[in-house]
């Protein structure tokens, strides 16, 4: 694998995470638990789609084959998407959505903080801009985790269930392979194994305030980074890709 290939794959993973999570959050539009929260979730979705666009722009310029961001976003086959499994999980209810968001935000903040020092100036610039947004996302999701965990019996039960269900997708956040090795060597990307403890501490800290517990069964699922998704993914792609597939090669 060349440096160029590794960096390209690395960027696509970063962009796929925000694309798929942004897609999931978009489903909440008009259905939030209260109007103000509808705006908050859409706001986060918009930030994530914006990040995706910036990251994909960089990726296609690295690839240097004349592709554009929409081809990347809409025309790959299911095995070519490399997002983590966590972000493709369905919304289920507001509790699941917030827990999924929280796990991701803690991770994404650590990633962008470190990427501000990437040896690639453009990626560092993207990271700096995205970090501001991610800090706000994390504030929002942390506050909600605490409100729901330490709210009513019902809310506690619901989010604890969400934690128990989504926990098995958290280790994949720190999955690394030869793609990462290559970019870490050159300072383009970062070694997320250095953050595992920080991630755990942040999560534990918020969970304590939320009176939530980490499940004892730590069996984990992965495969997203290699293009093997969960059953939800096919449906998500069908909806997302419809226009580009039904009306190929057109300007929008």
């Amino acid at each position: 694998m060349t440096t160029q290939e590794a960096f390209y794959n690395y960027l696509v993973r970063l962009g796929d995470d925000s694309l798929i999570l942004g897609q999931r959050l978009s489903e909440w539009c008009g259905h939030g638990p209260i109007l103000e929260e509808d705006i908050a979730l859409t706001n986060i979705a918009l930030d994530l789609i914006g990040q995706t666009n910036n990251i994909y722009e960089l990726a296609v310029s690295i690839e240097n084959k004349g592709s554009n961001v929409d081809q990347l976003a809409f025309l790959r086959l299911e095995k070519e998407y490399t997002n983590v499994l966590l972000v493709e999980q369905p919304n289920v209810d507001f509790g699941y959505t917030i827990i999924r968001q929280f796990f991701f935000d803690v991770y994404r903040k650590l990633v962008f903080e470190a990427l501000c020092n990437s040896s690639d100036e453009r990626l560092a610039g993207i990271a700096e801009k995205s970090l501001k947004e991610t800090k706000y996302h994390l504030k929002h999701s942390s506050e909600w985790v605490i409100r729901l965990g330490d709210g009513t019996e019902e809310s506690h039960r619901r989010v604890q269930e969400a934690v128990n269900t989504l926990w098995k997708f958290t280790k994949e956040l720190f999955f690394q392979d030869e793609v990462d090795q290559k970019v870490i060597e050159l300072g383009l990307g970062i070694d997320t194994s250095l953050f595992i403890e920080s991630w755990n501490q942040n999560v534990t800290n918020v969970f304590t305030q939320a009176t939530l517990t980490i499940p004892s069964n730590s069996w984990q699922h992965e495969g997203g980074r290699k293009g093997t998704h969960t059953e939800h993914f096919g449906y998500l792609l069908s909806e997302m890709q419809y226009m580009q597939r039904a009306y190929p090669n057109m300007e929008w």
């Binding site: 908050a40 929002h140 506050e143």
Partner: peptide, 8 residues
Amino acid sequence: MAIDNARD
């Protein structure tokens, strides 16, 4: 929450 919502 009021501050967060006001921002949004």
